[in-house]
Design a protein around this nucleic acid. Structure first.
Lengths: 340, 340
DNA sequence: CTGAAAGCGCTTACAG
DNA sequence: CTGAAAGCGCTTACAG
């Protein structure tokens, strides 16, 4: 014998008013006497009544949910903390506006299209946040065509749309300057796959900074985030450029760890050989060497993306169709200290 | 000029049948002619129609959503990768059964009660997964009373209910045996706050293993996960027990890092001093010393919890009201190698 | 095999 | 200030 379910009808009955009146009171509409308002609110409070959200969604034509698409491997990869930070930032910000976060992930790897499709057509969410690297042009345009508000985290070179991002070029540029200020004179850069726009920008930032200082450097890029490939490329860089005195690792996570692992195998002496990395993690404080890193404010990115999406959903005008969040460098010594 | 919205009415109209018929076809009900079935499915396929989920939720009285409560600090703490792994495991498993995962988090820290309450009463989800340490007895009983299926990850000593967990006692016991097999003869254990059941069980596992081998050890526990407290307790352990030759760190994340940090400050020589830790992380491969750790299969726990919840939601009988997932030890050498 | 109608729990003009 | 009624987009007995 379960307790009878509590709907607006029960409240109306108990308060001896129509359910329309109860609805108006709950939604703070004007034109209700103080007396009945109090009477109804009293009952609502005591019974701890909340309106059924499916019914509200149907009536209002909005769900008060937003969706975040996460990749299949977020759980097992080292990038887990990245996703975790993004997710909680989004969920919290959304919660502040009475929105809930729905996680969208394919059951089997890949196959994101189907996820978009069903969620989009079934109106499960009022808007979507997607990592730019997680979508192809086709899926994106379908979403936009379906008139579903969308904000990307990062940029997609194939598809321009609302986004939140960092300035990859500038961040790489600054870090390269830092390396030079630390006395490095022949730095190298190892990049992730150049198919990703952010990697191309980071390489460019590196080479531009070198050019500005009239310093020559070496660059290398892998074709895929794959341990074997990565370590092979590190080896090539070391062999082909025996004079390099430092390495700027263009991405964090396992990419970084694979690189460092390979450097160790080659008995690189980190006391002299400088190291810098793009992407900061709490555990870097405990790694040896203590890596100087570009810090991406992930939490702020999540907040910014969510705020932006909320405005789009509510048809508010956006000051800017995109937002660039500032990065900063966390100096830990792996590249020495600036001598200037 | 947005495209007119697509509902079951439009489909019915185009196929020249009633919407009831369309509904039956979409839900694979019997008693429909092959002919109209094909005709309708054709249109549905071409127009890429999906039923509105709010309407379905209202009619079916279920949402096809499950909720996961995550703590406020999941995003910024080192435990981020733990949550990330749990979240993706749950989301994927749920997706396989056509369920979506909704993330529940308070807007401001603490204040979980309100989160439960609104979500629960507004029928946003059909079931809930909660970390055992994240709830007080009162909230839990309200959920259960409201008849909302619930599975906990971990156990709550104040409230017995469906749960998925590891065997903390056995895991600690095994690791302690490993330490002894590695030749350690005076090990110490440092535990997180004893108010948490899992910490009490781990301490017990440690002392039981020692007792079985007739070996004496030292134990210490902090009262809160706080850097200062933790490092103070490490110091106390070292001072009060000058003879200890190894330390079993009872929890991972920043707790572990704080402990190691303190050991380093005290110039502990990790070549001789053994180290073991409860909780495994990908980055442990890159820490110095390379920590031997108890590995919790987080992904499997997420899968198990979700599977269990699904059964509860569908009123299927459970073989067991709880599930214990096996842990294993990842030997990395910080404690030496077994000599037996 | 097919359709008309009631119902799921809300909101919102509209009439009084 | 209040209520009756229609509508949101589905499903499901029920009648034919």
């Amino acid at each position: 014998m379960k307790p009878k379910k509590l709907t607006i009808n029960e409240i109306a009955e108990m308060a001896r008013v129509s359910k329309g009146t109860v609805s108006k009171i709950l939604n703070n509409k004007p034109g209700i006497s103080q007396d009945t308002r109090r009477r109804v609110m009293d009952i609502v409070g005591h019974l701890d009544y909340f309106p059924n959200s499916a019914a509200q969604a149907l009536a209002y034509q909005r769900t008060n949910n937003i969706g975040l698409v996460i990749p299949h491997e977020a759980g097992i990869s080292l990038a887990g903390s990245y996703w975790s930070a993004l997710i909680t930032a989004i969920a919290q910000t959304a919660a502040g506006q009475n929105y809930n976060l729905m996680l969208l992930t394919p059951h089997i790897e890949g196959d994101l299209e189907q996820v978009y499709d069903s969620v989009l057509r079934s109106h499960k969410v009022d808007g979507l946040i997607i990592g730019a690297e997680l979508v192809d042009k086709r899926s994106l345009s379908r979403i936009v065509l379906a008139d579903l508000p969308l904000v990307m985290v990062g940029q997609n070179s194939e598809f321009h749309h609302y986004f939140v991002d960092i300035n990859n070029h500038r961040a790489a540029y600054q870090m390269t300057e830092h390396m030079i200020e630390c006395g490095k004179r022949h730095p190298a850069f190892i990049s992730g796959p150049l198919e990703y726009q952010y990697n191309r920008e980071r390489v460019q930032g590196f080479t531009d900074a070198l050019a500005a200082k009239g310093i020559s450097g070496a660059t290398g890029a892998v074709e895929a985030y794959d341990t074997h490939q990565i370590q092979g490329e590190v080896l090539r860089l070391l062999r082909d450029n025996p004079g390099i005195d430092s390495l700027f690792i263009g991405a964090g996570g396992e990419f970084m760890l694979d690189v460092i692992d390979q450097l160790r195998r080659n008995h690189i002496n980190f006391t002299h050989f400088g190291l810098a990395v793009f992407d900061d993690y709490p555990y870097l404080n405990f790694l040896n060497p203590r890596l100087t890193a570009v810090h991406q404010p992930i939490h702020e990115m999540g907040v910014a993306a969510t705020t932006m999406l909320m405005k789009l959903i509510q048809n508010q005008s956006l000051d800017h169709p995109s937002e660039i969040i500032e990065t900063h460098i966390v100096v830990r010594g792996s590249c020495g200290e600036p001598t200037t």
